[in-house]
Simulated assay, not measured.
Amino acid sequence: MLVIPQWQGSAAPHPQRLTEGAHRLAALFPTARRTVVDIDPRPGRDGDGVRHLDVLTRSLAATRAALSRSGDEALLAVGGDCGIELAPIARAVARHGDSLAVVWFDAHADLNTPGTSPSGGFHGMVLRTLLGQGPSQLLPGPEERLSARRIVLAGARALDPAERDLIESEGIRALSVQALGDPGRLISAVADTGATHVYLHLDLDVLDPEHFAGLSCPEPGGLHPDQLRAALHALTERFACAGMGITEHAPTADSAGSDHVLHRILGGVAIP
């Protein structure tokens, strides 16, 4: 497991809470071998339309270095903002190529560029950057870039206009919260990509805030924890898991029960 307590990619009102969130998520897996990536806790300088770009660039280098020492096994990464997924997913793409699909459980598509982002927060650009369209300092190498045909958006419901345009023009598969009530529809969507392996990105804001507190960017109308658990079980039973990332947990005094909900969601799932 990699613990990546990065907050600088977030445009949320209280992004520093994500540092505690990363360590709270890691504590859910007490027996896992873990590496804590050394992330500069300070704010950074903005650049090229991205907040704190210099810190994010150093964080990416540190995460890549940690990955280089992690061996070939599938990896669990916990953060932190969604930007922590850049290196782990790039690694999975380089390893599995077109046999890999990325299932993006997230209230947001994270498909903006610096030019279309309304906030400048990199957590809203990470999936677009994995497609090879992002800030030059953070772009993955050609062999690490994801194809739009290998993306399945799951539960996205707060999209910017440029993201909607890209989803339509590229034919990116997207399942609504309602559609995810039937795990078979998700399995079919992933199977249609031709993938044999999946990387599971879990931004906790895919959950409905009525059922889970401590969200960095809550959006109404999300998944019930039992729906998410059923979807994760179905995916890991049908496909080989190439890795998983869990992000955007922002604990507060009112979210003391969130660990129980996470145990309920993740219990029995074949996590790396």
Score class of each variant (00 low, 15 high):
E237F: 04
D40L: 08
H52L: 06
R17C: 00
I271Y: 12
D38S: 15
M125G: 04
R238F: 01
F212C: 04
H233M: 11
S216G: 13
C82I: 05
Q133Y: 14
G49D: 01
R157V: 07
V269C: 02
L266V: 14
D182Q: 12
P140R: 11
H249C: 10
G49R: 00
H224I: 07
Q6M: 14
D81W: 05
P218E: 06
A65G: 08
H197Q: 03
L25V: 02
Q137K: 14
R24T: 05
D254C: 07
P30Y: 08
A148R: 06
A230C: 08
A11T: 05
R185D: 02
G155D: 04
Q227M: 10
P118N: 06
E210H: 11
L28S: 01
P30M: 13
G124E: 05
T196R: 14
E168R: 15
A22D: 00
G257F: 09
R164T: 15
P142S: 07
G141L: 15
A253W: 12
I167T: 04
R64H: 10
H224P: 11
L153C: 09
T19R: 15
R185Q: 13
L215C: 01
R95A: 14
T57R: 14
I39V: 11
G132L: 09
H249T: 09
I187L: 15
Q133G: 02
H197C: 03
D182N: 14
G132A: 11
R69D: 12
G257P: 10
W104E: 10
